[in-house]
Amino acid sequence: HHGSGALAALHADGPHAGLPVTRSDARVLIFNDWEERKRSEPWLRLDMSDKAIFRRYPHLR
């Protein structure tokens, strides 16, 4: 199991509170979210491209 239990660094406060600090933090969040959702949506594709990251977390651009 590759990303399970990996912890992402999140901004503690300010405008980005609760959001990932780096792209690799964002990838951890996206992976964990996908892993949760694919139980009920097995067709869901995992997209951890930069484009997917920016779409979801525009502050990382």
Rank of each mutant, 00 (worst) to 15 (best):
residue 1 H to A: 09
residue 1 H to S: 13
residue 2 H to C: 14
residue 3 G to E: 09
residue 3 G to L: 14
residue 3 G to Y: 14
residue 3 G to Q: 14
residue 3 G to M: 13
residue 3 G to V: 14
residue 3 G to P: 09
residue 4 S to A: 10
residue 4 S to L: 09
residue 4 S to N: 12
residue 4 S to M: 13
residue 4 S to W: 13
residue 5 G to C: 14
residue 5 G to F: 11
residue 5 G to M: 12
residue 5 G to V: 12
residue 5 G to Y: 10
residue 5 G to P: 13
residue 6 A to E: 10
residue 6 A to Q: 10
residue 6 A to N: 13
residue 6 A to P: 09
residue 6 A to S: 14
residue 6 A to T: 14
residue 7 L to M: 13
residue 7 L to D: 07
residue 7 L to G: 13
residue 8 A to L: 09
residue 8 A to T: 05
residue 8 A to H: 11
residue 8 A to E: 04
residue 8 A to M: 05
residue 9 A to M: 14
residue 9 A to H: 14
residue 9 A to R: 10
residue 9 A to D: 11
residue 9 A to Y: 12
residue 9 A to I: 14
residue 9 A to F: 09
residue 9 A to Q: 11
residue 9 A to V: 14
residue 9 A to W: 08
residue 10 L to H: 02
residue 10 L to I: 09
residue 10 L to F: 06
residue 11 H to V: 05
residue 11 H to R: 05
residue 11 H to K: 04
residue 11 H to E: 04
residue 11 H to S: 03
residue 12 A to V: 13
residue 12 A to R: 08
residue 12 A to P: 10
residue 12 A to N: 12
residue 13 D to K: 10
residue 13 D to C: 11
residue 13 D to V: 10
residue 13 D to N: 08
residue 13 D to Q: 12
residue 14 G to K: 03
residue 14 G to T: 04
residue 14 G to D: 03
residue 14 G to E: 03
residue 14 G to Y: 04
residue 14 G to S: 04
residue 14 G to W: 04
residue 14 G to M: 03
residue 14 G to A: 04
residue 15 P to G: 04
residue 15 P to Q: 08
residue 16 H to V: 05
residue 16 H to S: 07
residue 16 H to Y: 15
residue 16 H to F: 15
residue 16 H to I: 04
residue 16 H to G: 03
residue 17 A to S: 10
residue 17 A to N: 08
residue 17 A to I: 11
residue 17 A to P: 03
residue 17 A to D: 03
residue 17 A to G: 04
residue 18 G to H: 05
residue 18 G to L: 04
residue 18 G to Q: 09
residue 18 G to M: 10
residue 18 G to Y: 05
residue 18 G to W: 03
residue 18 G to A: 05
residue 19 L to P: 02
residue 19 L to C: 07
residue 19 L to F: 05
residue 19 L to I: 02
residue 19 L to S: 03
residue 19 L to M: 05
residue 19 L to E: 04
residue 19 L to W: 04
residue 20 P to Q: 02
residue 20 P to D: 00
residue 20 P to I: 10
residue 20 P to R: 01
residue 20 P to N: 12
residue 20 P to Y: 01
residue 20 P to W: 02
residue 21 V to C: 15
residue 21 V to S: 11
residue 21 V to T: 05
residue 21 V to L: 07
residue 21 V to Q: 15
residue 21 V to E: 06
residue 21 V to Y: 05
residue 22 T to W: 08
residue 22 T to F: 03
residue 22 T to I: 05
residue 22 T to Q: 06
residue 22 T to C: 10
residue 22 T to V: 05
residue 23 R to G: 06
residue 23 R to E: 06
residue 23 R to T: 11
residue 23 R to A: 10
residue 23 R to H: 10
residue 23 R to L: 15
residue 23 R to S: 11
residue 23 R to N: 11
residue 24 S to V: 11
residue 24 S to G: 13
residue 24 S to F: 14
residue 24 S to K: 13
residue 24 S to H: 14
residue 24 S to P: 04
residue 24 S to D: 14
residue 24 S to Q: 10
residue 25 D to Y: 07
residue 25 D to I: 02
residue 25 D to E: 08
residue 25 D to F: 02
residue 25 D to R: 01
residue 26 A to E: 01
residue 26 A to W: 03
residue 26 A to S: 02
residue 26 A to L: 01
residue 26 A to I: 01
residue 26 A to Q: 00
residue 26 A to G: 02
residue 26 A to R: 09
residue 27 R to C: 13
residue 27 R to D: 01
residue 27 R to V: 06
residue 27 R to Y: 06
residue 28 V to G: 04
residue 28 V to N: 05
residue 28 V to I: 13
residue 28 V to E: 04
residue 28 V to T: 07
residue 29 L to N: 05
residue 30 I to C: 02
residue 30 I to E: 00
residue 30 I to N: 00
residue 30 I to T: 02
residue 31 F to I: 05
residue 31 F to V: 04
residue 31 F to A: 06
residue 31 F to P: 00
residue 31 F to R: 07
residue 31 F to N: 02
residue 31 F to E: 04
residue 31 F to Y: 15
residue 31 F to M: 09
residue 31 F to L: 08
residue 31 F to T: 05
residue 32 N to E: 08
residue 32 N to P: 00
residue 32 N to Q: 11
residue 32 N to V: 10
residue 32 N to I: 13
residue 32 N to K: 14
residue 33 D to K: 06
residue 33 D to C: 10
residue 33 D to M: 09
residue 33 D to P: 01
residue 33 D to A: 07
residue 34 W to Q: 00
residue 34 W to D: 15
residue 34 W to P: 00
residue 34 W to C: 00
residue 34 W to N: 01
residue 35 E to Q: 13
residue 35 E to G: 06
residue 35 E to R: 12
residue 35 E to M: 15
residue 35 E to W: 15
residue 35 E to D: 12
residue 35 E to C: 14
residue 36 E to M: 08
residue 36 E to D: 12
residue 36 E to F: 12
residue 36 E to C: 10
residue 36 E to P: 01
residue 36 E to I: 14
residue 36 E to V: 11
residue 36 E to Q: 09
residue 37 R to I: 06
residue 37 R to F: 02
residue 37 R to C: 00
residue 37 R to D: 10
residue 37 R to Y: 06
residue 37 R to V: 02
residue 37 R to W: 02
residue 37 R to A: 09
residue 37 R to Q: 09
residue 38 K to D: 01
residue 38 K to C: 15
residue 38 K to H: 14
residue 38 K to T: 10
residue 38 K to M: 10
residue 39 R to E: 10
residue 39 R to L: 11
residue 39 R to S: 12
residue 39 R to C: 13
residue 39 R to N: 13
residue 40 S to A: 13
residue 40 S to T: 14
residue 40 S to N: 12
residue 40 S to M: 07
residue 40 S to C: 15
residue 41 E to C: 14
residue 41 E to L: 04
residue 41 E to S: 07
residue 41 E to M: 10
residue 41 E to F: 05
residue 41 E to W: 06
residue 42 P to E: 03
residue 42 P to V: 05
residue 42 P to G: 05
residue 42 P to C: 06
residue 42 P to M: 11
residue 43 W to L: 11
residue 43 W to M: 07
residue 44 L to C: 07
residue 44 L to D: 02
residue 44 L to S: 08
residue 44 L to K: 04
residue 44 L to T: 06
residue 44 L to F: 10
residue 45 R to N: 10
residue 45 R to D: 08
residue 45 R to W: 06
residue 45 R to Q: 09
residue 45 R to K: 12
residue 46 L to Q: 01
residue 46 L to Y: 12
residue 46 L to R: 00
residue 46 L to E: 02
residue 47 D to W: 02
residue 47 D to N: 05
residue 47 D to I: 03
residue 47 D to V: 03
residue 47 D to A: 02
residue 48 M to D: 06
residue 48 M to L: 11
residue 48 M to W: 15
residue 48 M to T: 11
residue 48 M to Y: 07
residue 48 M to V: 12
residue 48 M to H: 08
residue 48 M to P: 06
residue 49 S to Y: 01
residue 49 S to G: 05
residue 49 S to R: 04
residue 49 S to M: 01
residue 49 S to P: 00
residue 49 S to D: 03
residue 50 D to T: 05
residue 50 D to S: 08
residue 50 D to E: 09
residue 50 D to R: 06
residue 50 D to N: 13
residue 51 K to G: 08
residue 51 K to L: 12
residue 51 K to R: 11
residue 51 K to S: 13
residue 51 K to M: 11
residue 52 A to G: 13
residue 52 A to R: 00
residue 52 A to I: 07
residue 52 A to Y: 15
residue 52 A to N: 10
residue 52 A to T: 04
residue 52 A to E: 15
residue 52 A to V: 06
residue 52 A to Q: 07
residue 53 I to S: 00
residue 53 I to R: 00
residue 53 I to G: 00
residue 53 I to D: 00
residue 53 I to P: 00
residue 53 I to F: 01
residue 54 F to P: 00
residue 54 F to N: 12
residue 54 F to T: 08
residue 54 F to Q: 04
residue 55 R to A: 11
residue 55 R to V: 07
residue 55 R to I: 13
residue 55 R to D: 15
residue 55 R to M: 13
residue 56 R to Q: 10
residue 56 R to S: 06
residue 56 R to I: 12
residue 56 R to N: 06
residue 56 R to G: 02
residue 56 R to T: 10
residue 56 R to V: 12
residue 57 Y to H: 01
residue 57 Y to V: 00
residue 57 Y to A: 00
residue 57 Y to D: 01
residue 57 Y to Q: 15
residue 57 Y to W: 15
residue 58 P to L: 02
residue 58 P to H: 02
residue 58 P to Q: 01
residue 58 P to D: 01
residue 59 H to D: 00
residue 59 H to S: 02
residue 59 H to I: 00
residue 59 H to V: 01
residue 59 H to T: 04
residue 59 H to N: 02
residue 59 H to A: 01
residue 59 H to P: 00
residue 60 L to Y: 01
residue 60 L to W: 01
residue 60 L to C: 00
residue 60 L to V: 00
residue 60 L to H: 01
residue 61 R to M: 14
residue 61 R to A: 13
residue 61 R to V: 11
residue 61 R to W: 15
residue 61 R to G: 06
